[in-house]
Computed example of a mutant assay.
Amino acid sequence: MRTRRTPTRAQRDATATPPQSCIVVLPSAFIPWAAPISPNSSAKAQSHQTIHPPRADPLIVSPLSRPIIASRCRHHFCYNSIYRGILTGCNDAFLVDDSTRDRLISQDHRTVEILRPILRGRDIDRYRANWAGLWLIDNHNGYNNIPPVQVTDYPAVKKHLDQYYNTLAARHDKGITPYNLRNCAYHAEFSKRKLFWMDMSDRGRFCLSDSTVFCNDKGFILTGPSLRYLCAVLNSRLVSWLMERTGLTTGMGLVQWKKFAVEAIPIPKLSAKEERPFHRLVDTILSTKDANHSADISSHQADLDRRVYQLYGLTTREIAAVSRS
């Protein structure tokens, strides 16, 4: 009588039908909340940032998505540069409105040479910014072999800043004189094509800019290739969903879109041809917003979200889970 052998676990695993879906655990380098809090952070600062562990409804990623996550993600940020906005140390002095700008120019026409439009974090919206008519007095401290601004060359600006002299002199964030801004080696990046984004928000707020515009330290900029594609993916519902569940938050529950967190978002690298559908959608949204900033772009955004779901290989069930959140 022949004895029937019980198959080993390895044999059972080899012949088993693969599951239709499974939970993929991303490497810690891909997860923003896995980054340790800096040991130099103050106790007060650490008390205002909470770490979100994964919630009870983790994203279920189909096996077809695994190659995308494993081999195609996070390549773009190797070719892009991220910088924090300008820190003045005294916004009351260095940020002026339209009426103050006009007054300074009327007193000295050369003043226009050092006035630059600037965004605050709250001014940054999806795709396009809501500029509040604020101007930066760009008394830079020198960069790329360009010498520092000499405030004596701009008497109207000096007179304006003299009102704040005691504060300017006492601040740590100053340049060679109290009238100068602190060193900023990446000053020229603000004149390039770039993405702006808000550092604390309930969802991704990434907007494109082709002109010389600055932002304050409540925002960041990203320069380099594939900006329209990155704008599309980073403004998607899926990325906001991921950041809600993996990002650091403030005491008020807003997600912190800090540099290290955005760099950790797994974004597939596409060829120029594969990026084109995303470019067309972003261009359509931009032209719509330029014609009417408050225009309804929900149908275009829904189309973009569908393309991002396809990009990551999400199943119908997975898309429904993200959409319900």
Rank of each mutant, 00 (worst) to 15 (best):
A43R: 05
S323T: 14
I60N: 12
P54M: 15
S240M: 03
R193G: 09
T3E: 12
G251D: 05
N180T: 07
V157M: 06
A16W: 01
C22Q: 07
Q49I: 15
P148W: 10
Y229E: 06
T223M: 01
R101C: 05
R245C: 04
L95Y: 14
L311G: 12
L242A: 06
M252V: 04
R245T: 04
I23F: 10
D217A: 03
I105W: 08
I105A: 09
N80Y: 00
E244H: 07
F278P: 00
L238Q: 06
H300C: 13
F30L: 07
Y127K: 03
F206K: 05
N235R: 02
P225A: 00
N180S: 09
Y79F: 04
H109T: 15
A29C: 13
A29Y: 10
P19M: 04
D305I: 03
K44W: 13
D13C: 12
G204Y: 13
I221A: 02
F190M: 08
L254V: 07
P117E: 07
T288M: 11
H76Q: 12
T249R: 14
A321Y: 08
P67L: 12
Q150F: 12
M252E: 07
R12N: 09
E189G: 08
G133P: 04
H293E: 14
C73H: 05
H300E: 15
H160T: 03
P58V: 06
R55D: 15
D217H: 03
L222W: 09
L227R: 02
A264H: 01
N166S: 11
G121A: 05
L115Y: 08
R193Q: 13
K269A: 01
C90K: 07
G85C: 07
V308I: 13
D217F: 00
S240I: 03
W241V: 08
R276D: 12
L208P: 02
M198N: 14
F220M: 10
K259C: 09
S191R: 10
F77T: 00
A261T: 08
Q163R: 15
W197H: 14
R74T: 06
M200E: 14
V96C: 00
K158G: 00
S236M: 07
A302N: 01
D123P: 01
L286S: 02
Y179L: 10
R324W: 12
Q107Y: 12
D303E: 15
L222C: 15
K259M: 13
A261L: 07
